[in-house]
């Protein structure tokens, strides 16, 4: 495991654990999701740059476009949740529990 590989794996797993374990706000969860996509972006571009694969260097841009899609959808859901539940705390999302 080379150091760049370790760095992006560590950031991805950090963001994933941050998302999975205790989150107070929905917005913080979305921030963690964006952090995951960001570490994936860095990983993808480093992979293509290190191996010098020219035709693969466009794929980080596609990844960034899709993560922008995800982020905007998440923010729209944030607005909808804030309107229907009154706040964006994840603890208030408890209408459907068993």
């Amino acid at each position: 495991m080379t150091p760049p590989h370790f760095a992006f794996s560590a950031t991805f797993i950090l963001a994933l654990t941050g998302l999975v374990f205790h989150r107070t706000h929905l917005l913080s969860a979305l921030l963690c999701l964006e952090g995951m996509m960001l570490s994936l972006f860095v990983a993808l571009s480093l992979w293509a740059l290190q191996l010098d694969i020219t035709s693969f260097l466009a794929s980080p841009l596609l990844l960034l476009a899709f993560s922008a899609c995800e982020a905007s959808t998440g923010l729209a859901l944030l607005a909808a949740t804030a309107r229907t539940h009154g706040s964006d705390r994840l603890q208030s999302l408890n209408l459907l529990q068993c």
């Binding site: 998302l19 994936l40 998440g74 909808a80 539940h85 999302l93 209408l95 459907l96």
Partner: peptide
């Protein structure tokens, strides 16, 4: 646009986005 529908959508979005990111990872 019912609160339950919005909540279900939010939960679905969070899990699916996490799973997709894990898959790409």
């Amino acid at each position: 646009n019912h609160p339950r529908a919005i909540e279900a959508t939010t939960k679905y979005f969070l899990t699916q986005a996490t799973a997709a990111a894990m898959l790409l990872f």
